[in-house]
Simulated assay, not measured.
Amino acid sequence: MSVLICGSIAYDNTMVFPDRFRHHILPDQIHILNVSFLVPEMRREFGGCAGNIAYNLKLLGGEPLMMATVGRDADPYLERFEALGIPVGHVRRIDEAFTAQCFITTDLDDNQITAFHPGAMSFSHENRVSDAQDVKLGIVAPDGRDGMLTHARQFADAGIPFVFDPGQGLPMFDGADLLDFLELATWCTVNDYEARMLCERTGLSEAQVAERVSAFIVTLGGEGSRVYHDGTMSDVACVPADELLDPTGCGDAYRGGLLYGLSRGADIVSSARLASVMGSIKIASRGGQNHAPTRTEIERRFRASFGSPLDF
Rank of each mutant, 00 (worst) to 15 (best):
M1W: 11
M1Q: 11
L4F: 06
S8G: 10
N13T: 15
R20T: 07
H23Y: 04
I32W: 10
I32N: 10
P40K: 07
R43T: 14
R44N: 13
G47V: 00
G47T: 06
C49L: 14
N52V: 07
L60V: 02
L60M: 05
G61K: 05
M66Q: 15
M66L: 12
R72T: 10
R72F: 10
D75F: 07
P76C: 01
P76N: 14
R80Q: 12
G85L: 12
P87C: 01
H90K: 05
I94H: 13
C102A: 13
T105E: 06
D107N: 09
D109C: 08
A115M: 15
G119V: 04
M121G: 03
F123K: 04
S124T: 11
S124A: 08
H125S: 12
V129K: 03
Q133H: 15
D134A: 14
D134T: 14
G144S: 11
T150M: 09
F155M: 02
A156I: 10
V163T: 14
M172T: 11
A176D: 12
D177H: 02
L182S: 03
E183A: 09
T189W: 03
V190H: 08
A195F: 08
E206H: 13
E206F: 06
E211I: 09
R212E: 02
A215H: 03
V218C: 04
T219W: 09
T219K: 11
E223I: 12
T232F: 11
V239C: 15
P240R: 10
P240Q: 10
P240E: 11
A241S: 07
D246K: 00
C250E: 01
D252N: 09
L258Q: 08
L258W: 08
L259A: 02
M278E: 02
M278I: 06
S280V: 01
I283C: 04
R286G: 02
A292P: 04
I298W: 11
I298L: 12
R301S: 04
